[in-house]
Write a protein that binds this DNA or RNA. Structure first.
Lengths: 228, 228
DNA sequence: CGCGGCTTTGATGTTCATCAAGTAAAGTGG
DNA sequence: CCACTTTACTTGATGAACATCAAAGCCGCG
């Protein structure tokens, strides 16, 4: 695929940029670079200075931080058209979260000052930025509360339903993360992730072989999510 | 005190408005109203249409939502100069959280469309709004993670230290919320809140009589917070 | 004055983390 | 490509942390 496409023609462009004119997109285009990242590759490192606004066009990435106990904690996953670190770029000097590619991915790195310039100049664009930030943070906050108010079975059920509906739009898919990473996403131990997955398999709710998962009883799974 | 002061002279005005000219402040002033709320009074109700941007000038309020199980959950407290519902006003039609006064309070209600108009017109102002939103959501997210990674003693310790340092700037203060509300803030049961407070009292870390609390061993309390 | 909600303490049971030990899978270097 | 090493996965047993239940005293308020 063509990496260094002009923003004005980019088919991965988010609606966030709809309010920019062709001239403004050209300005952005001059100040961005597009980079391919291999699976497992580091995109941003927690603590590094923020110089760019990162935008995911292809792949899947995780945002994580290190808790006080030294354990990794996954704050959220990002899909194509998601903005990485949008919650930090405008008010922090250094990245708060590390970002790692879960599969081969492609990101655009837009010079942060060029973007800020756009925000100041184009009022409709700044309103859109505000709406995007609000949406992202609302989602993280409500997801976090939802996870923490559920028991372990409910958490796993929620995660699987989300994968199926939000990320893969299919009842069968390959898990993009390890059991350990699942545990880091929903705040439990890897042992219990495995235990509950085995339980679901025993109960005929899912098929699971290695990373390949198929939801065979979505009704039941949704019920477990809602009641947990 | 004078409720309907002109924004240009308001001593409770947040830095958020620093970038507005006198004319712009006058425009805001024409489209705002200042309201006094009694302790326990409802300021915003979850589900109501968002027509105004609410700004706290005096008092203390709680933002809460109702979990699936029907239990109340307190998302955050807001002090003077804090913006209430800033995370919702730009991207939602209806309030997500209810807001209730914990003590007698005063709020300014600014017409939401007037504020949006300002954002579009004044680029420096919109940058400030973005920074504010980012700060608020970052704080809520990191506080939520911090709370959930601690055991119950650590949670109570964190809450008390926060009250002391952030809200009252004193080692002695009156708890602004009930034991039950404390439980709703840090996701535990009222019984355990009480149990642990009694423990802290037994261990000489705090004095507690009804709502009046005094931290007698801040060192130990901080240690419990950090190690929990 | 009495009712209902808040507070407090104790007893009990459940949920989940931790520890241990073994198997499978995935890198790695020769 | 194979032996080797490491990392991920899996199951069971145990104990600790915490929620729930129960009962009694307290306080504010109509």
């Amino acid at each position: 695929m063509e990496l260094n496409q002009h923003c004005a023609n980019c088919k991965f462009r988010s609606h966030l940029f709809d309010k920019l004119s062709v001239e403004e997109l050209t300005f952005i285009n001059r100040n961005k670079k597009t980079v391919a990242i291999k699976k497992g590759g580091l995109i941003n490192k927690s603590g590094d200075p923020i110089r760019e606004f990162v935008y995911l066009t292809q792949g899947l990435v995780k945002m994580q931080k290190i808790g006080k106990n030294g354990k990794e904690q996954i704050v959220s996953l990002a899909r194509p058209l998601d903005f990485i670190g949008l919650l930090s770029v405008f008010n922090k000097e250094f990245y708060e979260y590390s970002v790692t590619a879960l599969v081969d991915s492609v990101v655009c790195r837009i010079d942060i000052n060029s973007l800020k310039e756009m925000v100041k100049r184009n009022g409709e664009f700044s309103m859109d930025i505000i709406r995007f930030i609000s949406n992202i943070s609302n989602e993280i906050i409500s997801d976090t509360y939802a996870i923490n108010s559920k028991n372990l079975r409910g958490r796993i059920a929620m995660l699987l339903v989300d994968f199926s509906k939000k990320y893969f739009e299919s009842l069968a898919f390959d898990l993009p993360i390890s059991r350990k990473e699942m545990a880091e996403m929903i705040d439990m131990t890897p042992e219990n992730v495995i235990r509950i997955l085995s339980e679901f398999r025993r109960d005929g709710i899912i098929n699971l072989r290695g990373k390949h998962l198929e939801i065979t009883n979505m009704n039941m799974l949704s019920k477990i999510r809602d009641l947990g």
